[in-house]
């Protein structure tokens, strides 16, 4: 690990301002991904700003009837929250499908959104990787790509976003709230928060330098049968090959977002018009234009079957 200086921030505005004062600074909350990457010297911050004392750890009702989730709410607390379990069940299910009990006790809401990819070429510093080291090429294209993205890919990168939580937040139309070093705040719809790789795969999100996430808000509950289905190589503590977050209403209409298939949680609202026509019809539009590799082409069929299973479960209840 490279040496770094360390400070404990006392307010969101202070933290963002400190980040501007120290080029090369990073915020640390749970640290479960950042510490891993720092040990491998994939992340090499020169200054760490500990944001754990900012008090952003509450879940509150919003005047609009939704929920405001503080950036530092741990994954365990969010999954266990009574309102989340009752009104946003897909989010609770997604959270408990991710990581391990120990990691969920550390990982925060904002940190979960900011996880880096788990692409093995990103982690292996002997391999080329445009995300880790821009301009060096992509080891996964033409390499071992079974876990990689099938849609929204570029010639520079086929990595996936690893979060389960973010997929549920995408289907729930969450909004990310931030504060910037100049003290101004902004609200970013989750659909616009994560980027596709394009020719700049080293940039994961639209956050600007020094911008700190303060909360994620959920709109008023929309009811429906909410299901998160994760398909992976083992039954627990593994990243998704594919995952489906779905909200299905009584009349068969609904929403669906996918994990494990793209550089961001994947949702195409237009495809949801096909919900009453079944999984095959939905997936045909949701994954139209997919560019899988020989090794991960199975994901398209897997998404279709996972969604079919989710729709059958929703109908049966």
């Amino acid at each position: 690990m490279k040496p770094f200086t360390f400070e404990r921030a006392t307010s969101g505005a202070d933290a963002a301002a400190a980040a501007e004062r120290h080029p090369g600074a990073k915020f640390v909350a749970g640290g479960t991904n950042l510490l891993d990457l720092m040990k491998l010297e994939i992340e090499t911050p020169t200054h760490l700003i500990d944001v754990n004392s900012l008090g952003l750890d509450k879940i509150e009702k919003t005047p609009e009837g939704g929920l405001r989730i503080g950036a530092l709410v741990r994954n365990t607390e969010l999954a266990a929250d009574e309102n989340v379990r009752r009104d946003y069940g897909v989010l609770s299910q997604a959270l408990v499908a991710g990581a391990s009990g120990q990691l969920r006790n550390m990982a925060t809401t904002a940190g979960n959104l900011l996880q880096r990819t788990r692409c093995p070429y990103f982690y292996d510093t002997n391999q080329p990787c445009n995300k880790r080291n821009p301009g060096t090429g992509c080891g996964a294209i033409g390499g071992y790509s079974r876990q990689h993205a099938v849609i929204g890919v570029s010639d520079a990168c086929i990595a996936t976003h690893p979060s389960d939580m973010a997929v549920a937040m995408r289907v729930l139309d969450a909004t990310v709230e931030t504060i910037r070093p100049d003290g101004s705040q902004r609200k970013i719809p989750i659909a616009e928060f994560h980027r596709l790789p394009g020719d700049k795969p080293h940039i994961d999100t639209v956050l600007m330098a020094g911008e700190l996430i303060t909360a994620v808000t959920l709109p008023k509950p929309i009811g429906g049968r909410q299901i998160y289905r994760k398909v992976r190589d083992r039954a627990s503590f593994a990243f998704a090959l594919v995952s489906v977050a779905a909200i299905v209403q009584r009349d068969g209409s609904g929403r669906v977002a996918l994990g494990g298939v793209a550089h961001k949680p994947w949702r195409i609202e237009a495809a949801e018009a096909e919900m009453p026509n079944g999984a095959k019809a939905v997936v045909a539009r949701l994954l139209a234009g997919a560019k899988p590799t020989n090794e991960n082409a199975f994901k398209i069929k897997l998404v279709e079957r996972a969604l079919a299973s989710v729709l059958a479960e929703a109908k049966g209840a």
Partner: peptide, 14 residues
């Protein structure tokens, strides 16, 4: 709460 002590800095536990 149980946590992985390898993935957290001592300084974060004031």
């Amino acid at each position: 709460r149980r946590i992985n002590s390898c993935l957290t800095l001592a300084a974060m536990h004031q």
